[in-house]
Design a protein around this nucleic acid. Structure first.
Lengths: 343, 343
DNA sequence: ATGAAAGCGCTAACAT
DNA sequence: ATGTTAGCGCTTTCAT
């Protein structure tokens, strides 16, 4: 038998009272007779009455849905952040609708429009690799939809963000490379306009300065974050007259591609080249040698982004806050000269 | 300035016509004057009118939201399937709300109820590790909400499913192990009631039979699919008087845990133990040695599950279909005896 | 203490 | 060819 969801009307009809009485009783309105209230609540319970979110949404002009846009769904970094967002939001009775921009700004714009049309109550975004236009986000703000960026951010002056201290981590790795005997350091990074790219490169340069190695632009190469362009980058570096003896990747994915290329060149890690990346993907401890990486508190990034959204929904106004989360540098075999590893 | 979404009423007021005229004009109703229709459509375009999905949903009793429940969000297997679901559904104008059961049936029941209360138009599920009760899914069917299971399935007689041929793949790996010199074969698997566990174990036994190795229950050990219980399982196996020289894992995650344990035992892969898993996680080609694994067509699994849901929504009745997708066995270093690898 | 009515945005049957 | 009305499920103001 077709089981239709029970409505207030159904309850009202059954008990011979009006819809508004039922509505009030269900929220313990003091005006309603205590006894009637009890009977109504009992029936609602028995019939498993659940308010229709569509009707509520129409009335209150809100959906209790938060949109999330990430560059991809399949890397551990993002899925684990999403997991954090979900944990936080579902406690507050919000749902999340996830869209993947597939690292493309066009797709990102499409996602934003779709979600806006869905009438989401808030939007959490990590920028696509080539996203350099901010119009679509301006639109989000014009519609007064709370907005939060994480990791790859923009419009920082107006929008809340959740980030990590990229500069100091990149600097730390650079000096760590030097302490392990590296003298020709390279950095394989991403598109120039991304904040994480700028910040990590800045840290890299600061590190070089600290250990007194002059900066040579040949050793800072940009990619579009794809495996292919990372391979191209590493190949170029290894073919230099003076090849690098340490490479910092803008993330682990780039480094994994790098690792394979280095091995096919017949070079050994860490004997010939030291390696380190960012984001501490799950497989960092599974590759050989284990990869040194900056571990982002992914779950916490997600939770914090969600909290910032909830805050804005409650305050009913945009908030500009910047949350900087602590990362930790996991030093593993890939960045340690054999001689410096205590036997 | 607060930018409210424009409604039919706004358009009607502006043009001095009734709401229904606007509504009709927007869907090119033949009754409406061609000229008026043009003016209305022009204004709608200019003011960027988008129908309110909440109002439409309330009217049509549908949300255009499909719920997806997976055991976890962070493994490549699931996130990649979700990616496939998304690709298929967004083309049809559906949104997906993803929930993670965290491998717990209690959480799974909660997710089902939440999504049902959200009034989803369909539900796609991969069972939690310990899910053995079917009541919550019966409820979904009673509410006439289209349901599709993938990978870990149940109620196959009544519900559409998307699966792979586990039996034959497990059998193939088993005989492959034997061909590579293994004589004491073990299988680390999951909870007994899961279809994938039963099927892969069945294939394993069939393989043993084919190569004439008698089955010894000591070498078939169940886990709850967690890293910890996988470690316990492998430790137990390695301590047997006659330790296995080949191990088939019910999935790659189990095998990754196994790999670490084997290495700490001072054993070599594949010299001492051959290894193979299921699901071909992204890092299968990143671990050392590269892992032999059955590659599931994850994206296709997602697309097919989505298609089955859409089909049921269109047909307006439950459909019981079983789609069996082809997998491919990726043979890599972990399962090949050195001697058999051509030099 | 309870009910009637309006309205959230939209569609469709029913006027005119 | 266009307008009026009712209704989807709910809350809330205004009667009574």
């Amino acid at each position: 038998m077709k089981k239709k969801r029970v409505t207030l009307k159904d309850l009202a009809n059954e008990l011979g009272v009006s819809i508004s009485t039922v509505s009030r009783a269900l929220k313990d309105h003091p005006d309603i007779d205590k006894n009637l209230t009890k009977r109504i609540q009992a029936l609602a319970q028995k019939w498993n009455y659940i308010p229709n979110p569509l009707a509520m949404g129409l009335l209150r002009q809100q959906t209790r849905v938060i949109g999330v846009i990430v560059p991809d769904l399949v890397t551990y970094f993002f899925s684990s952040i999403i997991s954090g967002i979900e944990d936080e939001l579902q406690q507050s009775g919000y749902y999340i609708v996830i869209s993947s921009s597939k690292e493309s700004m066009e797709k990102e714009i499409e996602c934003v429009n779709n979600l806006l049309n869905l009438r989401i109550d808030g939007l959490i975004v990590c920028l696509a690799q080539n996203s350099n236009n901010r119009e679509h986000f301006r639109k989000v703000m014009e519609h007064h939809v709370p907005l939060v960026f994480f990791d790859r951010v923009c419009l920082e002056k107006e929008v809340s963000t959740v980030v990590v201290d990229n500069v100091s981590m990149a600097k730390d790795i650079t000096t760590h490379f030097h302490a392990n005997g590296a003298r020709t350091l390279a950095h394989i990074t991403g598109p120039k306009h991304l904040n994480i790219v700028k910040e990590r490169a800045e840290g890299f340069l600061k590190g070089l300065e600290e250990v007194g190695i002059p900066y040579d632009e040949k050793y800072l190469v940009h990619t579009d974050l794809s495996t292919e362009s990372a391979e191209k980058a590493i190949t170029g570096l290894l073919r230099l007259p003076q090849r690098p003896d340490a490479i910092l990747g803008v993330n682990d994915t780039v480094i994994f591609a790098t690792m394979k290329a280095i091995k096919t060149f017949g070079l050994k890690i860490p004997d010939d080249v030291l390696l380190a990346g960012f984001s501490d993907e799950f497989h960092a401890t599974v590759v050989e040698p284990n990869l040194t990486s900056v571990a982002h508190p992914t779950h916490e990034i997600g939770r914090n982004a969600a909290k910032l959204i909830l805050e804005q929904i409650e305050e009913e106004k945009p908030i500009q806050k910047k949350i900087v989360l602590n990362t930790s540098l996991h030093i593993r075999a890939s960045s340690q000269q054999k001689s410096t590893i205590t036997p």
